[in-house]
Design a binder for these strands. Structure first.
Lengths: 245, 245
DNA sequence: GTTAGCTAGTGTAAAAATTACACAAAGCCA
DNA sequence: TGGCTTTGTGTAATTTTTACACTAGCTAAC
């Protein structure tokens, strides 16, 4: 360093958008800030990047420091650099996102964060800084991703039912899907392994449990496989008749 | 400012990947560097972001300063932040890309650049810094974009033939397309206006000229329109027989 | 002015993918 | 045993995609 002391320098951060899925609801992991500005407000887990640290490494480190979550695959989404996005000076931030199985992790907020908690994406209240905008951008990315990669499996527990999988897709795409067509499509990918087990403790016919065929998926990815899921929004007309009661 | 003087700061740049299309070839606009490091080497047009300047504005300004090109729509692609990507210190760069009609612009390199010139994407020699990687990322983005938006029109002159359009798609997708199916698909979008004119000065049957229906396209975009172009690679088997001569 | 050479322009049939749609089966519980 | 709830399944109609080959129209060379 030293050569660049004369050049324009800015503070530089990463912000992580971690999605999970629980109780039929798409969630995002937030921290309650323990520092000014926005002390006590909910925000995305993010912090400064060290000068000698790769961007991707910083995202992983910051996530662990603020929430206790480690060992996840983070994907870069977009960089936000509006001049006034931070009240204390010029701060440019790179947004990363990830999909995790909520049940696999225990949340442990570090000193800088007062608290770390899952929040329903559909109902999050205003966040600190421009984090609403960042969250929105990552949600759009997720929506796109769900159509080109079977991301569902990354959010569900190891064993899941087809109905759970469908609900996940519906939550992400914010639409309803046809049960039979959804199953046909999913099963035709040949990426699900029937575990020959059924749900327990439900007050109705128990559903079959499946797991994701990780091995086959990796092979398909190599071959440049692209998963397509498109389905028109159903029953728009019928729903309107409910409103008019 | 001032509050953040204690925090980790890095130098911060933008790099622009400007694509054009000419003589059946996909091109990228490069400058020859007039500064160390990589003095005299070809590189993407990029430079520092001012402290009081939005990221997107910086990309536009830097592009104009280095190449004379202004008034283009730049889209953010990805941020590159490996620790050692710049020999003189920590420099994080945001890559932007754009598609322009080569004939609409005159290239005028500024003092910092020795030269600015279009280079064929397929044959660019090694570039300064990690610019090969950045170019590759933007090319991948373009490949993706071409399937979901009729970007072709942004690269061609106002009047073009269907064959020119097809060659452009083939150059971007690095594949061959079936003439009849391509035309059927493109015309079915109903975004082309037949100009009732034909090519001049060609030594064969002249092709009809079309222009792009900008107005209709904007309307379709609002409705959440998504253009799909998929076509299998043709004639793989037949080509192999050539090799075996 | 005839012809050779080149690219433009066009249709159809087969296959594949998508969509819409309704009821019997299985387990739990009262 | 019957009622409740959710699971699990097939088919026909429609749309989209794919593969494929010859005539039309112009220039240039002879």
């Amino acid at each position: 360093m030293g050569h660049f002391d004369n050049f324009f320098k800015s503070a530089f951060t990463v912000d992580n958008v971690i999605f999970g899925f629980d109780e039929g609801d798409l969630k995002v992991l937030l921290i309650r800030r323990g520092e000014e500005p926005y002390h006590g407000k909910w925000a995305l887990p993010g912090y400064f990047v060290y000068p000698n640290e790769d961007l991707d490494d910083a995202a992983i480190r910051v996530l662990e420091e603020l929430t206790g979550i480690n060992n996840v695959y983070l994907e870069q989404v977009q960089t936000f650099g509006a001049v006034n996005r931070h009240a204390f000076g010029r701060v440019i931030t790179v947004a990363y996102f990830s999909l995790i199985k909520i049940s696999n992790y225990t949340i442990q907020p570090a000193s800088i964060a007062l608290q770390a908690q899952w929040h329903s994406v559909a109902t999050v209240s205003p966040l600190a800084f421009d984090h609403d905008e960042i969250l929105h951008a990552c949600f759009m990315r997720l929506k796109w991703l769900v159509r080109s990669r079977p991301v569902g499996f990354e959010l569900l527990p190891p064993k899941f039912t087809l109905t759970e999988l469908q609900h996940l897709y519906e939550a992400i795409l914010e639409t309803e899907l046809d049960k039979r067509n959804f199953r046909k499509k999913i099963l035709s990918m040949d990426l699900l392994i029937d575990l020959n087990e059924t749900q327990e403790g439900v007050a109705h016919r128990p559903a079959k449990l499946y797991k994701f065929d990780q091995k086959k998926y990796q092979e398909l990815l190599k071959e440049g496989f692209s998963f397509e899921l498109k389905e028109s929004r159903k029953k728009e007309v019928k729903k309107r008749s409910n409103n008019s009661v």
